[in-house]
Design a protein around this nucleic acid. Structure first.
Length: 679
DNA sequence: CTAGGGTTAG
């Protein structure tokens, strides 16, 4: 009996001396044997159990108490919070108050955290009122918990109010306001608080830095970031997972993916966020294949991808147009129960439309129960790319009707839609409404879309004027779209003016050289052409090879123009020859104007024959069941002659053929194309 | 009591 009393005394002073479950059970048993399980000693046993996270054992003891003392309440409430049983924590708090016990300051941090996690601001505020009435609002931990709650549920202003009223502040207090400022985009204030910390003799720790680092990745200030990286290493907290993923992300966002890789490879502990920071980093830097490789590596490292991981990798499939991988990921998404996530759904809509399956994209879009400006934009862009300009425009109108305000990206999408079907007046209306109705500035992309539209519509001079008077400095690519319009509408004079504009901005623009050479050739201007060719040779420029690829049984087959190395080449040629005979019977005449001039007519036809898109289409047809849709992707614009030829092929073979070039999709069916030959 | 990664365009 007396030894138990001594034990109780030491335990009251230091209950964490009990470190294992068996020790705790032993002690508990001893109390029961000596019949000294009073309210006080029972509370101690409870707190020992809860410190060891043994909720079940603690509750068994707790239930035996008729009127549990504060220590017992406090322990179970903290344990409930600890185990994420927030509503039970709050219920216990209510019960404690009803029993007339007055909570001490140790109870509030857990209660406030539970309110935060339950997102129950009303209850939290009433607890705050209670805290003030008890005069406990000057308690450090309680104040910190209050700030955290307001930061998550109310807003930074109330956080600041609590902070300023706190008589004593520690690192956690500062970290909480700093995170609050950083998360509300008030970067200057966040950094000011970091400096203020220093003057209060508090040193920034891992929490501080992982809140501050994302600021520099958004500012893209590598220098500041590197400075922090150095500080982190000196402090020996560079292996912190939180800091690690912030660093990976920061370097990736500053286009220094090699530094991201280095940081990642030095992390000895990696969670799903560290992995995903690098996956997302690869995607942000256009390294789609590496993103997919790392994602697979993450899965085989038994790190379960979460919702964020899927919304990071799916765009990689969209860019690569790898439908089979996209479908696989879609399957994982559904099995993981992430189908309703708006980020993922938007990414899927985009992926399916970029992989050529606009119907699947639309189905996912229609099944979403909430549409934001991103998902609207994804489906509008999808229809635009597939040549459904009118549908895209009416979706844009529907978006506005539903009260979703279009952002700058949405305008890029609707202008692109107008451009692909030649809706000139509508496009002007949208372009002007940006500033007049929505207070958005027109940026390069919007100017580029309108310039493209005017050029395609054959209003070449108007397009030239428009680009010359842009409020933003035009880039080579804006002029390039006009140049190709000049070529389509056979206006050599303007093309020369445009080409000079391009060469002053980008003297190595190979596409422009090729286009100009062809135009000179078809106009019989051999001298100018020769001069241009010499310029190209002097610069040592080479033509980007045209290539097309097609997916077959989960494998991608690539074809380069004129390259005969594919094992099926004989069968492909046999097929093309047979189909060509039929085509010519039906009126096909090879359009050789797009081919360089200095070869004879017969050879020109042969060159067209070897165009990569034609090879890929042929390969697809001979390797699939009749009636199967053929999907081909090409790295540059589809050639005029191939466009005609594939129309014939679609009719003769009764196939739907979908070709994605660098700007849009062409759906060939029964001898015609969805673009209506307007492209 | 406090912290990190995500979707649409180019």
């Amino acid at each position: 009996m007396s030894s138990s009393k001594a034990l109780i005394k030491t335990l009251i002073k230091n209950p964490t001396r009990i470190k294992s479950k068996s020790q705790a059970k032993q002690l508990h048993a001893q109390f029961i044997r000596t019949q000294s399980l009073s309210h006080t000693s029972a509370s101690i046993v409870i707190s020992i159990y809860t410190n060891l996270k043994l909720l079940h054992e603690a509750l068994l003891v707790f239930k035996t108490l008729e009127s549990p003392p504060v220590l017992a309440w406090k322990s179970v409430i903290r344990c409930f919070t600890d185990q994420s049983l927030f509503s039970r924590a709050l219920a216990s708090f209510v019960e404690m108050r009803a029993s007339g016990r007055c909570p001490d300051h140790n109870v509030f941090p857990s209660v406030l955290k539970s309110c935060t996690m339950m997102m129950d601001l009303r209850f939290g505020e009433s607890v705050h009122g209670f805290i003030v009435r008890l005069g406990m609002d000057c308690d450090l931990y309680t104040g910190n918990a209050l700030m955290n709650m307001y930061s998550k549920l109310l807003g930074i202003d109330s956080v600041r109010k609590v902070f300023e009223l706190m008589p004593r502040k520690d690192v956690v207090s500062y970290n909480t306001v700093i995170a609050g400022y950083a998360q509300s985009g008030m970067y200057e204030d966040a950094l000011r608080m970091v400096r203020e910390m220093g003057t209060s003799d508090l040193k920034p720790d891992a929490f501080t830095l992982s809140s501050v680092l994302p600021i520099f990745s958004e500012y893209v200030d590598v220098l500041k970031g590197k400075e922090i990286h150095g500080y982190v290493i000196r402090k020996g907290i560079d292996s912190d997972v939180y800091i690690g993923s912030s660093l990976v992300d920061m370097y990736a966002k500053s286009a220094r993916i090699e530094d991201s890789e280095r940081v990642f490879s030095h992390l000895y502990r990696r969670d799903s966020i560290s992995w995903n920071s690098l996956v997302a980093g690869y995607v942000q830097n256009g390294r789609y294949n590496e993103a997919l490789r790392l994602f697979r590596q993450m899965v085989s490292a038994k790190v379960r991808p979460g919702a964020v991981a899927f919304s990071s990798v799916i765009p990689a499939c969209a860019h690569l147009a790898t439908l089979h991988l996209g479908k696989q990921l879609h399957g994982y998404v559904l099995r993981g129960g992430f189908g309703r996530n708006i980020f993922i759904a938007s990414a899927l809509v985009d992926m399916y439309s970029k992989c050529g399956n606009i119907q699947a994209a639309r189905k996912i879009f229609d099944r979403m129960n909430l549409h934001d400006e991103v998902s609207w934009t994804a489906i509008i862009m999808g229809h635009a790319l597939h040549g459904h300009g009118h549908e895209a425009v009416s979706l844009f109108e529907e978006m506005k009707r539903q009260g979703v305000k279009p952002n700058q990206v949405a305008f890029v999408a609707v202008l692109t839609a107008c451009s692909h079907v030649g809706l000139v007046d509508e496009a002007w209306g949208y372009f002007n409404s940006m500033t007049k109705v929505y207070g958005l500035n027109q940026e390069l992309e919007h100017y580029a879309a309108v310039a493209d539209l005017l050029g395609r519509a054959g209003k070449l001079e108007e397009a030239y004027d428009f680009i010359s008077k842009m409020r933003v400095e035009p880039t080579g690519s804006v002029w390039s779209t006009l140049l190709s319009s000049c070529s389509v509408h056979k206006n050599l004079e303007l093309a020369e003016k445009v080409a000079e504009k391009i060469f002053t901005i980008d003297s190595e623009n190979m596409g422009a050289y090729v286009l100009m050479c062809n135009m000179y050739a078809s106009n019989g201007r051999w001298k100018e052409m020769a001069k241009l060719r010499l310029r190209v040779r002097k610069k040592g420029l080479r033509k980007k090879p045209a290539c097309s690829w097609i997916e077959m049984k989960n494998k991608t087959h690539g074809f380069v123009s004129g390259d005969r190395s594919h094992p099926s080449m004989d069968r492909i040629n046999e097929f093309l020859k047979a189909v060509m005979e039929q085509m010519e019977k039906e009126g096909y005449v090879a359009d050789t104007s797009g081919v360089l001039h200095d070869v004879d007519e017969e050879h020109k036809r042969e060159l067209l024959f070897g165009h990569s898109e034609r090879l890929a289409v042929a390969f697809g047809i001979i390797n699939t069941e009749p009636g199967t849709t053929i999907r081909v992707t090409k790295n540059i614009r589809i050639c005029t002659d191939c466009h005609v030829a594939i129309k014939f092929i679609s009719k003769i073979t009764e196939r739907e053929i979908i070709v994605r070039d660098n700007s849009r999709f062409h759906h060939f069916n029964r001898g015609s194309c969805s673009c209506g030959d307007y492209w």
